Computed example of a mutant assay.
Amino acid sequence: MTVTPPHDHLPGPVVVLEFSHEIPPRTFAGILPERVAEAGVRRIDPLACPGIADEVTALRTQGTHWASSVREAGRLPSAVLAYCSASALAAELVAALPEPGVPLILFDPEYPDRPAPQSLLEELAQGIDDSGERPPAPAITDLPPQQALAAAGAHLRSLVARSAPDLDRAVADELTAGQRAWMSFVLSASAAPPTAAVKPWHVFLSEKGTWAGAGEVPVSRTGESPRGLFTSPSVKAALFQVLALVGACR
């Protein structure tokens, strides 16, 4: 987690959850107001949770870990921002903070369902071997999460070994660590329904985004593409207004 000093006009920094190795990347850097971006941002990569590549950790436990990390870094956050499947983790992080009511701002929130890990495994396998001759991925949907991760990891390592039969196991582990971390996170997220204890302060949606609870929280339907949501000047201006309201209310 990287830390910069808190923003003068907010009671604490802004925490953002971003998948740092996503391709192509999505980052809040393009839409955070300059004064906030320069003076008060803490970035958390959900896939950097210790041991996540080898163990499926409950999403609530992950939220508690990151909340502790935030507390140790200094002042409590003024707001927490997250996108896509990091939304549920962000809610758990907010719920674990000692001060209630820290605003949660979501962008194109998604909540992985039960079939999501299987779909992800197929996608990751194709990324390693797209020859069309790779062995089928194991069925993991009905397995307990830890067994599912073990089966997925073994399959991914085997695909690496097919292209490099003499590769050392430790090297194969290293080469597949990112994929296994992603698989572990999705397994955790798909096993945990969104916490009802924390409702978003505001939701920003792209042209493809959806929000089932639109009547409960303010929703900005931007019309931007999923990537454009993170580069749009109009979204940046709207986020500035939301954060200004956060500062006024806290």
Rank of each mutant, 00 (worst) to 15 (best):
T4G: 05
P5Q: 12
P6H: 10
L10R: 13
L10A: 11
P11Y: 08
P13Q: 10
V15F: 10
V16S: 07
S20W: 04
I23Q: 14
E38A: 15
V41F: 03
R42V: 11
D45Y: 12
P46Y: 08
C49N: 02
P50G: 03
A58G: 13
T64W: 01
H65I: 06
R71P: 00
S78D: 05
S78M: 07
A86S: 15
S87C: 11
A90K: 10
L93N: 02
L97E: 05
P98C: 03
L106M: 06
L106D: 01
Y111P: 00
S119G: 09
L120P: 01
L121F: 06
G132D: 09
P136R: 14
T141E: 14
P144R: 14
Q146P: 02
A150M: 03
H155C: 02
P165K: 08
L167H: 03
L167S: 07
A177H: 08
R180P: 00
W182V: 00
A197Q: 10
K199W: 03
F204C: 04
E207A: 15
A214L: 02
A214H: 14
A214E: 14
E216K: 14
V217K: 06
V219I: 12
S220H: 10
F230S: 02
T231K: 12
Q241Y: 05
L245H: 12
R250H: 15
